[in-house]
């Protein structure tokens, strides 16, 4: 069971953006319940593309599907904006209304758990 410690970044992707008005669809889960790491980190995690990983922060955890993106340096994992990213994002707004959505200290590890759907995820709140 491999794990990496990274800064988590969330943000827009084409796939996430083109399904954001259709969030109850499978396409949205496929687009947003993912975590991108580089090939090296994939090796460290001991998983293959398409496997699930668990992202843990001080604020929560979420299971997502891992993908390779070699644009990410070793220190970074990327999760598209959406409820999975927000399950591990802190709500403190720093006194200016804005949570830190980018640069969250996280641990990513391989897992046997499955990805929660939107309804299950909301039900868990």
């Amino acid at each position: 069971m491999g794990k990496i410690n990274v800064k988590l970044i969330s943000g827009r992707t084409l796939d996430q953006g083109s399904t954001l008005e259709n969030k109850m669809s499978k396409e949205f889960v496929d687009a947003a319940a993912i975590c991108e790491v580089n090939q090296k980190n994939l090796g460290t995690l001991g998983v293959s593309e398409g496997d699930n990983v668990e992202v843990k922060t001080d604020f929560g955890e979420a299971v997502v599907c891992v993908r390779v993106n070699n644009g990410n340096p070793d220190s970074i994992a990327f999760v598209p904006m959406g409820p999975w990213a927000n399950a591990v994002t802190g709500s403190d707004s720093g006194g200016v209304g804005m949570p830190i959505y980018k640069g969250i200290d996280s641990e990513v590890s391989s897992t046997d758990k499955s990805v929660l759907g939107v309804k299950e995820l909301m039900g868990a709140i």
Binding site: K23, F59, P83, N86, T89, S91, P99
Partner: peptide, 16 residues
């Protein structure tokens, strides 16, 4: 808009 999706989980809780 969709705050349940785009706000941190801790902020969404009160929506319940």
């Amino acid at each position: 808009a969709d705050p349940a999706s785009n706000f941190p989980k801790g902020s969404v809780e009160h929506m319940k």
